[in-house]
């Protein structure tokens, strides 16, 4: 699951950087508070130091450069290759047209004309389930039939907006079997809070069976 791996890797990286910066600044602040009690008083004469300020600005630019480099290369990982945002028309990928509407989801499997939808109203029972096979890329083609929605699978760190009159594509391969909750992330009106769905990854055999028999997997 490249999306989650990339998220966790970069999140760890940025948390470490942020924590270091926070500790340094807090440390200097505490030192300043402690020093302010020294009996000798304030002896500093100068109130700027252009050389140090210049070197420091360059250092900051370097830090910014490293962060941009690390995150932008990670961004490549979720845009290129078999999985990623705007990855489309890949050989062997299963195309699914995802239509968000006020206030639920419809999943149309383009190859088999199978369609899944629900009401999203009565909790678990009314939620549509997007069934996918493990190990095979699934191409979600997102659109909306009314306002802007956003497809979010929090456990997999995947999010992409569904616009009306526009198709956004994301290709995802689910490595393991399981069932995860999907949510609408873009505020879309009164029933936005309950606009959920499930993603269920099953073995390729089970997926074929489900496609042919139509029994809920």
């Amino acid at each position: 699951m490249v999306f989650l791996e990339v998220f966790e890797r970069i999140f760890t990286f940025e948390i470490v950087v942020a924590a270091a910066v926070f500790v340094i600044i807090l440390g200097v602040l505490v030192v300043a508070l402690l020093l302010s009690r020294k009996p000798s008083g304030d002896k500093r004469k100068r109130d700027s130091h252009p050389l140090i300020e210049g070197i420091y600005a360059l250092l900051l630019a370097g830090v910014a450069g490293v962060i941009v480099y690390v995150t932008a290369s990670a961004h490549q990982d979720v845009q290129e290759g078999p999985n990623g945002y705007q990855v489309a028309n890949q050989a062997g990928a299963i195309p699914v047209d995802v239509t968000a509407f006020q206030w639920c989801w419809r999943f149309d499997y383009a190859d088999t004309a199978k369609s899944v939808t629900g009401t999203c109203r009565e909790k678990d029972a009314g939620l549509p389930t997007l069934v996918v096979p493990t190990g095979k890329p699934v191409e979600l083609r997102l659109t909306s039939s009314d306002v802007i929605h956003s497809l979010w699978i929090p456990d997999k760190a995947v999010k992409l907006d569904a616009f009306p009159h526009q198709t956004n594509t994301v290709t995802i391969t689910f490595d393991e079997e399981g069932r995860w909750l999907g949510r609408c992330a873009e505020f879309c009106g009164p029933y936005h809070p309950s606009m959920h769905f499930y993603v269920k990854a099953v073995s390729p055999q089970e997926y074929e069976q489900w496609q042919q028999q139509g029994t809920p997997a």
Binding site: V6, F7, I10, E14, I67, T71, H75, D77, V78, K159
Partner: peptide, 17 residues
């Protein structure tokens, strides 16, 4: 500092909204 996180697309895909 958390602003830098949400300014990174790969983190924002999870954190946005």
């Amino acid at each position: 500092l958390t602003g830098i996180m949400v300014a990174s697309p790969v983190l924002d895909y999870q954190m946005h909204d």
